[in-house]
Amino acid sequence: MTTAYRPPRDHAWFLRNRNYTVFVARELTSVFVAWAIVFLMIVIDAVLNGGDPAAFAGQPWVIALNVVALAATTFHAVTFLNLAPTATVIRLDGYRLPAWMIQGGNHSAWLLISAVIAYFVLRTP
């Protein structure tokens, strides 16, 4: 068909629909995942090589960035753990385990692991 009209590329497609925008926000959390790793490596470096982790982490721009990173990684955790049941099909007795059970398990594990980490970091030996 030579007469068919082919629309040009829509450069703002991710603004056309709320779900697209949430999708892009979800994907962009990965930038803050990368930042969180960089930040933790700087803290580890300071701890192991005789520096002061508080000096770097205490700068206002680092705190501000980390507040955003906290929101982003939490958003990542919620969305990623919620989407897990679509990829994993667990069958019990021939029928599928409902999604909310897998999601509930994931979020429970998240809370438990967070509590264990906080305990080991904060306990006074």
Binding site: N19, Y20, F23, E27, L83, T86, A87
Partner: peptide, 18 residues
């Protein structure tokens, strides 16, 4: 990339994303 919109608009609840 798992946008998930295919599943939301499906009138027959096929769930292609899944």
């Amino acid at each position: 990339t798992f946008v998930g919109e295919c599943t939301k608009v499906c009138p027959k609840h096929v769930d292609p994303a899944e």
